[in-house]
C-alpha cells in the first residue's frame, strides 16, 4: 500500500539514515533537483550505500534519477540498481521515447545483473505540457511502468502560469493524469503540497487528490506524511460499510438470492469490488481486527 511518498535529498545522510522511521509508505531518494551538479557523484554513491546497508523495514524505496537529457542518468542507474530499489522515478518524462530509452537500459541491466525481465519498476514523472498531453501513451508504453506521477512545480513553469495553493492551474493536468493512468491500468500519484508549515492546507489538498482518484500523494516534508496517510486510508465508516456489503452478499448467496440490497440500495458488482478494495487496504494497514 503506497499512500505517501516522501522525498529525501540524496546527499543528506541525516535524512537518509532515518528514512524508515518517518512514517511514509515509500521514500524517494532524490538524485535530481535536491543535488547540485558537483555532488551528483557523491549522492549516488551515498544512496547506493544506504540502499545496500540500511534496513528500510516495510518502507518502499524509490530513487529519482536524473532526466534523460542529462549526462547523469545512466551512471545513476548503474550505481543504484544492484541494490534493488523498489521503483525508479524518471523525471521530465515527456514522450514515450524518453521512457523507452530508460526501459531498454533497465532491461540491459536486468540481463547484466541476472534478474528477471521487468523486475525494475519505472514511474514516469509527468512535469511538462508535452508529458501531460502524452500521458496515456507514456503510461501504456512499457509493462514495467507501475504508475504516473504528477510534478506540478516544473509543469506550471512550462505552462507559463503561477503555482498556487488552491491548484486551479493544475486541475486539468490532475484529471488528465488520473484518467490516463487508470485507462492504462496503472496507479497515479499526486504532486507534493509545498507549504511545509500549512498543516490544514495539506489536509485539504490530500483529500482533494483522493477525491480525484489518485492512488497516493508525494510530500517534500515529513510533517505532511500523516495527513497524506490519513487521507488515503479507508475511514472507519468506509470499512464498516464494506464489511456490511460483503456480509449482505454472503447472506444472499447462502439464501440463494440473486439481487442484493443494503439499506434499501441495490448492491452491484462495482460496489462489491470497491468494498473488497477497501477491506484489502484496511487489512494491509492493520486497521481490521484491533481495538482502536
Amino acid at each position: 500500500m503506497r499512500r505517501s511518498m516522501l522525498f529525501l535529498p540524496g546527499n543528506n545522510p541525516n535524512m537518509l539514515i532515518n528514512a524508515a522511521c518517518l512514517g511514509a509508505d515509500a521514500v524517494i531518494f532524490d538524485l535530481e533537483d535536491a543535488v547540485a551538479p558537483a555532488e551528483k557523484d557523491a549522492a549516488r554513491i551515498l544512496v547506493r550505500n544506504a540502499l545496500r546497508s540500511m534496513d528500510f523495514e516495510g518502507t518502499e524505496t524509490v530513487v529519482r534519477i536524473n532526466s534523460v537529457d542529462t549526462p547523469y542518468w545512466q551512471e545513476d542507474l548503474r550505481q543504484v540498481l544492484p541494490e534493488r530499489p523498489n521503483v525508479i522515478l524518471l523525471p521530465k518524462a515527456s514522450t514515450p521515447s524518453d521512457v523507452l530509452l530508460v526501459d531498454a537500459f533497465l532491461s540491459d541491466m536486468e540481463r547484466e545483473l541476472g534478474v528477471e525481465e521487468g523486475t525494475f519498476l519505472l514511474m514516469p514523472l509527468i512535469e511538462t505540457a508535452l508529458g501531460v498531453e502524452n500521458a496515456y501513451l507514456i503510461a501504456s508504453s512499457a509493462p514495467r511502468i507501475c504508475a504516473l506521477f504528477l510534478g506540478a512545480e516544473d509543469l506550471t513553469a512550462d505552462l507559463c502560469c503561477t503555482r498556487t495553493k488552491e491548484g486551479r492551474e493544475i486541475e486539468y493536468a490532475r484529471a488528465r493524469l488520473v484518467v490516463a493512468a487508470r485507462a492504462a491500468g496503472k496507479d497515479v500519484y499526486d504532486t507534493p503540497f509545498t507549504d511545509v508549515s500549512d498543516d490544514e492546507g495539506i489536509v485539504t489538498d490530500a483529500n482533494l487528490a483522493r477525491a480525484l482518484g489518485f492512488t497516493g500523494k508525494a510530500s517534500i516534508s515529513p510533517r505532511h506524511v500523516d495527513a497524506i496517510n490519513a487521507a488515503f486510508s479507508p475511514t472507519e465508516r468506509e470499512i464498516r460499510y464494506a464489511l456490511e456489503v460483503l456480509e449482505a452478499i454472503n447472506r444472499a448467496k447462502s439464501e440463494g438470492k440473486g439481487a442484493v440490497s443494503l439499506h434499501g440500495k441495490m448492491i452491484d458488482a462495482p460496489i462489491v469490488a470497491r468494498a473488497e478494495r477497501t477491506l484489502a487496504a484496511a487489512e494491509s494497514l492493520g486497521l481490521i481486527g484491533r481495538k482502536v
Binding site: C21, L22, G23, S221, P222, D226
Partner: peptide
C-alpha cells in the same frame, strides 16, 4: 527535527 516529531507523536 522530523525524528523528534515522530517520537513526540
Amino acid at each position: 527535527d522530523p525524528v523528534g516529531l515522530v517520537m513526540a507523536q
